[in-house]
């Protein structure tokens, strides 16, 4: 048998950034095809918004003296945030399906760098979160049930997207931690409970009560408080109180989720 030579220069290692558009496109189509995810991400939040805002009229729709935004805008931010958190968490948690199906093992037989893979998951989570937020914002704006200053729309949307990325890390952590059958079923109820503690379905929770003090420590609380803060803009250009503890809450939970995801991810990709 001849001894052919192999020219490695015709077989380069892939030399591209973290983002591959083909792969990202396929990833997004996968999620968008999933009817259950789509309903919870893009149908449920705007429908809930319409349902709740329709019952808030007249004096009830006023946030406070001088405040530009109406209560409808506050509800819109809550619903958009809920949809975005659900979207990013599901996108992150989809690694559990990939682990169970052996897809992540298959990917190890390709030049794909595991870190690039995680980056891609985060980007697709971000795009999905943007879709969820966008749909709710568009429905709320088009129906006229929400109004606030132009800059508040932009500020709220940006805060929701950045904060939702924290939950992509939460999804990844759960996706690497839990077996595939349970991951999604577990995450839905957990997010619902965290949303209640975060005041998503009730409006701001006072921290005077014991319940409020507990709620203040939960992951969505800080995120929700920061995301709603731009809605407190008044006609004189001032904002409501901003508590530093909200940022501490979000940063601490972000650190915990990222650390957890990294820990499980290392365990998952270690060669045994």
């Amino acid at each position: 048998m001849s001894a052919p030579t192999i020219d490695l220069s015709t077989r380069p290692r892939p030399n591209r950034g973290l983002l591959d558009l083909t792969v990202l496109g396929i990833e997004l189509r996968r999620v968008l095809r999933n009817r259950r995810t789509m309903i919870f991400m893009v149908v449920f939040p705007p429908v809930m918004f319409l349902f709740i805002s329709a019952q808030i009229t007249g004096k009830d729709d006023v946030m406070g003296p001088g405040i530009i935004a109406n209560v409808g805008a506050y509800v819109m931010v809550s619903m958009a945030l809920y949809g975005a958190v659900l979207a990013t968490t599901s996108a992150g948690a989809s690694v559990s399906i990939e682990r169970a199906s052996g897809w992540s093992r298959q990917l190890r037989l390709t030049p794909l760098n595991p870190v690039a893979y995680i980056a891609m998951k985060m980007i697709s989570a971000l795009v999905l979160g943007a879709i969820a937020t966008g749909v709710t914002f568009i429905v709320a704006s088009a129906t006229g049930h929400a109004h606030m200053a132009a800059r508040s729309w932009v500020e709220c949307a940006l805060i929701i997207l950045v904060g939702a990325l924290v939950f992509a890390a939460f999804g990844l952590f759960m996706g690497y931690l839990l077996p595939s059958d349970n991951a999604m079923q577990f995450i839905g109820p957990v997010l619902a409970i965290l949303s209640i503690f975060g005041g998503i379905f009730t409006g701001p929770i006072s921290t005077d009560s014991l319940y409020g003090k507990i709620a203040e420590m939960t992951p969505i609380y800080g995120f929700s408080a920061i995301a709603h803060w731009p809605t407190t803009l008044t006609t004189s250009g001032t904002y409501g109180t901003f508590k530093f503890s909200w940022v501490v809450n979000l940063v601490v939970w972000a650190a915990l989720f990222v650390a957890g995801a990294v820990w499980r991810f290392r365990k998952d990709t270690a060669r045994v």
């Binding site: 490695l8 380069p12 290692r13 996968r30 399906i97 990939e98 052996g102 897809w103 093992r105 030049p111």
Partner: peptide, 20 residues
């Protein structure tokens, strides 16, 4: 060898995403 695309494998089971 994998990074250079020199070797690939057909595994017994798994390694596929059902929804693609």
């Amino acid at each position: 060898a994998i990074a250079h695309g020199l070797v690939s494998a057909v595994m017994q089971t798994g390694g596929l995403l059902k929804d693609l």
